[in-house]
C-alpha cells in the first residue's frame, strides 16, 4: 500500500512586460501632468509668482545648477548620514525595549509623542544648544526619523501570534534564538514600513533645519530664491528635494522586494 502521492508541479511563467509597465505608466502620467500644467499656466496667464510654467522651472534650474549643486550635496549628505544612523538606532531601541513588556508600555506614549512633534518647533532651541555648525543638522534628522522607525519596529516585535512563540518553545529555543529567528523575521514587513517612513522623515528633518538657520542646504536656497523673486528656482529646489526623498524611498523598496519574498 502506498498512498503517498508525489504531486506534479507546474510553475507559472513570470508575466513578461509587467516590469516595464510599472515604470512606464507613472512616467506617462508625469509627462501628461507636466504638459497639462504647461498648458494651463500659459493659456490662463497664471502669475509666475503662483506657479511658473514647468519648462521655465526646468530651464532655469538647469542653467543655475552649478550654484545649486553644493547645496544639493550638503542636503544629500545630511539626509543620508542622518538616515543611516536613524535606521540602526531606531531598530536597536525597539529591540531593547521589546525585551520587557513594562518598558514597551512605558515608552510607547513617549515615542508617539516624539513622532507627532514636528522637529521644526525644536530646531531653534537645538541650534541654541548645539551651536550653528550646519553639520549638526544631522542631529535634527536623527531626532525626526528615529522615533517613527522605533514605533513601527516595536509594533512588529510585539505583534506576534502566540502560536509562533509556542513553536519556539516546542523546539527548546533560547531567548536569543527566539528573537532572531522568529520575532525579528516576523516583524520584517513592519520594520521596512518603519524604514520607508524614515526616508520621508529624514528629508523633512533636513529641510526643516535648513529653514530655521544657516545659509547652506536646499531649504535655505528656497528661502533665498523666494526672497529675490526667483520663483522658478524655488520650485526647482523643491523638486530636487522631492527627488532625494523618492530616490531614498525607492532604494529601500528595492531592497525590501529582494528580502520580503513572502506573504502573510
Amino acid at each position: 500500500m502506498n498512498t503517498t502521492t508525489a504531486v506534479q508541479k507546474k510553475r507559472k511563467p513570470e508575466s513578461i512586460g509587467s516590469g516595464y509597465l510599472n515604470i512606464l505608466a507613472p512616467l506617462i502620467v508625469l509627462v501628461i501632468l507636466i504638459a497639462a500644467l504647461e498648458f494651463f499656466t500659459r493659456a490662463f496667464g497664471i502669475s509666475r509668482f503662483v506657479l511658473p510654467p514647468p519648462t521655465d522651472i526646468i530651464a532655469q534650474t538647469i542653467s543655475n545648477f552649478p550654484e545649486i549643486w553644493p547645496h544639493f550635496l550638503f542636503t544629500l549628505k545630511i539626509v543620508a548620514i542622518g538616515f543611516m544612523i536613524s535606521v540602526p538606532l531606531g531598530m536597536l531601541i525597539a529591540a531593547l525595549f521589546s525585551q520587557y513588556e513594562i518598558l514597551v508600555k512605558a515608552i510607547s506614549p513617549v515615542i508617539i509623542w516624539l513622532v507627532i512633534t514636528p522637529m521644526i518647533t525644536l530646531i531653534p532651541l537645538i541650534m541654541l544648544w548645539l551651536g550653528t555648525d550646519p553639520n549638526l543638522r544631522v542631529i535634527v534628522v536623527i531626532i525626526q526619523a528615529t522615533p517613527i522607525i522605533t514605533l513601527n519596529t516595536l509594533n512588529g516585535f510585539t505583534n506576534i501570534e502566540g502560536e509562533k512563540l509556542e513553536l519556539a518553545k516546542s523546539v527548546g529555543a533560547s531567548k536569543r534564538q527566539t528573537f532572531i529567528k522568529i520575532i525579528f523575521m516576523n516583524a520584517m514587513p513592519q520594520v521596512f514600513t518603519g524604514i520607508k517612513l524614515g526616508c520621508i522623515f529624514s528629508t523633512i528633518g533636513a529641510i526643516s533645519a535648513d529653514f530655521v538657520a544657516g545659509t547652506v542646504g536646499l531649504g535655505s536656497r528656497i528661502v533665498q530664491y523666494t526672497k529675490y523673486n526667483s520663483i522658478e528656482l524655488s520650485y526647482g529646489c523643491i523638486i530636487i528635494i522631492a527627488l532625494i526623498g523618492i530616490c531614498l524611498f525607492s532604494i529601500v523598496e528595492l531592497i525590501e522586494k529582494r528580502i520580503v519574498l513572502w506573504k502573510n
Partner: peptide, 9 residues
C-alpha cells in the same frame, strides 16, 4: 500544530 504554524518567511 493544529493549524500548521509554518513560518511564512
Amino acid at each position: 500544530f493544529q493549524n500548521n504554524n509554518l513560518l511564512q518567511w
